[in-house]
Design a binder for these strands. Structure first.
Lengths: 106, 106
DNA sequence: GTAATATGCAGGTAAATGCCTGCATGTCAA
DNA sequence: TTGACATGCAGGCATTTACCTGCATATTAC
């Protein structure tokens, strides 16, 4: 997994929306996905390419259509390897912050 | 929480490294953080401003120093409201994908 | 007070990003 | 075969991004 590609891919609201759309109904074509976005088809294609490069989406050609499927693995790995560390320390980090904001400096 | 700011902030490797550094030792000054980055102080400042705008980092001025603390709340919320949806459906999404990659199209 | 230290502020630039238009290719159906 | 449909490819353009340098301000130590 390339963590940077995954996080970069998630950094754009259109791409998060695409993942949302695929989560609602997996295996949609490019055209179907475009109906829910307010941009040109080619722009959506570029976003989908970025998601594919991050391995968050896999595609299958069926005739003249291209079907898009979520691959949940990289997202899971990014969470496990990166976000979870912060979750583990969440309460103590929150404690640091509160103590400091209260000006408790002695 | 502004989800877009949070995800955008996490989309840069330098900013993730800053969060990592603060996770190891919370409350570091700008100068301390810069020692671990290979860029000018001003560049690091800009990254920290973005983390602060996303509310992922809070700062406290102490004399001429500026201390930086992680705020774990927005990250937790982003996970809860967004990533967890995919976690819940993870196995079924993975199943869709596998079925399709096997060319199981009937 | 003065010098060293820590940070803030104001541009400036090259590269990346996100969007577009126009045209080409490939597939299906009549 | 021909026209409609789904997608691919190439290039252009405005904005944002990530980095920098140079100088200003504020705090501490001597």
């Amino acid at each position: 997994m390339d963590a940077d590609k995954v996080f970069k891919a998630l950094g754009d609201p259109t791409r998060r929306k695409l993942l949302d759309l695929l989560c609602e109904r997996n295996g949609q074509t490019l055209g179907q996905l475009c109906e829910n976005l307010e941009m040109a088809r080619q722009s959506a294609t570029q976003h989908l390419e970025i998601l594919e490069a991050a391995n968050l989406v896999s595609t299958v050609k069926r005739g003249r259509e291209k079907l898009h499927f979520i691959n949940p693995v990289p997202l899971h790995e990014a969470y496990e390897r990166w976000v979870r560390k912060f979750e583990r320390q969440r309460l103590s980090l929150l404690h640091d912050l509160k103590k400091e904001l209260e000006g408790d400096d002695q």
